[in-house]
Every structure is written in C-alpha cells, then in structure tokens.
Design a protein around this nucleic acid. Structure first.
Length: 291
DNA sequence: ATGGGCTCCTGATGGC
DNA sequence: TGCCATCAGGAGCCCA
C-alpha cells in the first residue's frame, strides 16, 4: 500500500495511541511475518515483553517503535497490505473485518491490543538494534524528502549519476526513499517526464523538478490523510483516506489528462503498471531512454 | 559494484 | 458453477 504519506499517517496514529504503553505480552500467529528475526519467535517475543514504547519513528516506508531503556526498536514494514489496528478504536468491526489476517498481536498495559494485520504477508516486523540514527534494518535506504537530513541538491546529483530509467530510480529506495508506484507516476506527470527517461540524461533542473514534484504530491496526500481508496488500506482507526480522487494519472487509463485532454495510457512496467499522458510525457528519443 | 529480473504471498475480479 | 489468468500501493535476493 503504503507509500510515505500512508506510512506517516499510520505513524501519527500509532504515536497517539501507543506511546507510553507497556507491551505486556506478544502473540505471533504467523511466523513468516517475523522472518527477518534470525533468532526466531521466542527471541522476538522476549525482546518486546515488559518494555514501554517511547516513540514511533519513520524513514521512507519503514517505521519503528522505540523501547524504553533498550538500544532496540520494533521495526515494521507494511509491504503491500500491512496495517496496524488498535483494538480500542475499532471494536465494532472487530470480528468480520480482518478475520484470519492478523499476524502478530501486542497486548498493551492499558488493556488494549495492537494488531499487525497483513493479507499478503509481504510486510514484516523485527526487533532490531538501534543504530546511530535508524535501526540497522533501515540503514540501507536513503533519507526521504521530509527528513531534516534530506538534501534536494545532493539527491538530484545522485539521481543523475544513476544509469537506469527514471521511474526505476524513483522506486529504488536507496537514492530517495518513500516513493512508490502511485507517487512515482504522479511526480513524473507533474514534471512532464517519461518513466523510461535515462537518469543520466536529465538536466539538474529536470532532476530537481521531479524530486520536488514527488515531495509536493506526497505532502498533499499526507495533508489529506494518505491515499487510500481500498478497504485494505486504512489507518490505525480503520478509517479510509480520501485522497484518491485527487490523483492526476495513477489509475486513470483512457481518461482525459487534466492538462492537455489526451487519454492517459497504462503500460506494463516491472511486473506492474505505469500510467502516463502520451502527450505531456512523450517517449524520449532512443539516446535519452533507458530500456 | 550496479542494475535488473524473479520471487515471496493472499485475495478479488473478470472472461470463458 | 468452476477454472484460469490477471491484477494489487513492495522490496529482498541472486545473478550477470
């Protein structure tokens, strides 16, 4: 689901509901969800039980709960379908809603439960050492556009040093993090750039413009509560977002481009879909294209 | 050392 | 009704 705005929406919800709570006990329903915990489920459970949550932090699409008096954090990635659900906030929909998809449950000291629900099980949880700034399992990704450490100039340069296609580079979390398939398409549309544009051929201005566009569209989505047009993707209260109708290209195949009226096209890309305006985002000449 | 293809899952949907 | 193909907002891993 979840690209940066959705994950940040979840982070805020979690911060409000679980900071200050002690984790009394933990139940793992599906081992696959903690597959990154090399020491196994017993270690995962024992590392959490008895600890108090002091903060909820995020970089890109990764988020983590810091634990008082330890140098560890509970790191989470939502994958394609992960959700955190707080039992107190969704009592009415408890039974039907996510039956059979609850993978891990944390029992909190206030008597409520925090459940990690994940239909496709691409998401994961791990108790990890807290490094200097971020947990080890998050250290390999770049800063996202909302990180105080993020530099547009540096990221723009890094982007132009890549030898790949522009959309591929935007989706690669090691150059800039937080951008997924929806916001990549939205940013490319705003910047009028083709997804297959070779990153090495971008001017500094063009590279900056697409990065700025990504930051803008994600900021707007965040202000609207995260893009969520599917019941699979909800915040910790179980509420849907409402930003979907404001998307300019994603999912709009055969509909008119809001800028020029041309019909948006859908193309296969890396086993998924890309949406673009064939006129605003023309196919670059061969020399400026990557694959 | 990079880049890119394949793969891990579950469930919904549409065509035949 | 069933069966099959396709699709879904992600990224880790492996190989060239």
């Amino acid at each position: 689901m979840p690209e940066l705005p959705e994950v940040e929406t979840v982070r805020r919800g979690l911060a409000r509901l679980v900071v200050g709570q002690r984790i009394d006990s933990v139940t793992v329903f599906r081992d696959r969800t903690i597959r990154r915990q090399t020491l196994g489920a017993d270690y995962f459970v024992a590392s959490l039980a008895g600890n108090t949550i002091t903060a909820v932090e995020r970089r890109g699409k990764y988020l983590w709960l810091t634990l008082q008096g330890t140098q560890t954090a509970l790191v989470a990635h939502l994958g394609m379908s992960g959700q955190f659900r707080h039992r107190g906030a969704c009592e009415l929909s408890l039974t039907a809603d996510y039956a059979g998809q609850e993978r891990v449950r944390l029992h909190l000291s206030d008597g409520q439960a925090l459940s990690f629900v994940d239909q496709r099980t691409f998401g994961w949880l791990v108790v990890d050492d807290l490094g200097d700034r971020v947990p080890r399992s998050v250290a390999h990704i770049a800063a996202d556009p909302f990180d105080p450490d993020y530099s547009l100039a540096r990221t723009s340069t890094a982007l132009r040093h890549r030898r790949t296609g522009l959309k591929r580079a935007l989706l690669d979390q090691t150059t800039v993090s937080g951008i997924g398939n929806i916001y990549a398409d939205e940013a490319l549309w705003r910047a009028r750039l083709h997804p297959d544009r070779a990153t090495a051929t971008l001017s500094a201005a063009a590279a900056s413009s697409v990065l700025l566009a990504a930051a803008e569209v994600m900021a707007e989505a965040l202000a609207a509560g995260g893009t969520s047009f599917d019941p699979l993707y909800v915040n910790v209260n179980g509420e849907s977002g409402w930003f979907a109708r404001e998307l300019s290209v994603y999912g709009r195949s055969d509909q008119a481009c809001y800028r020029c009226g041309s019909l948006i096209v859908r193309e296969a890309f890396m086993n998924r879909s890309s949406y673009r305006c064939p006129r605003c985002q023309r196919t670059p000449p061969m020399a400026h294209r990557h694959r």
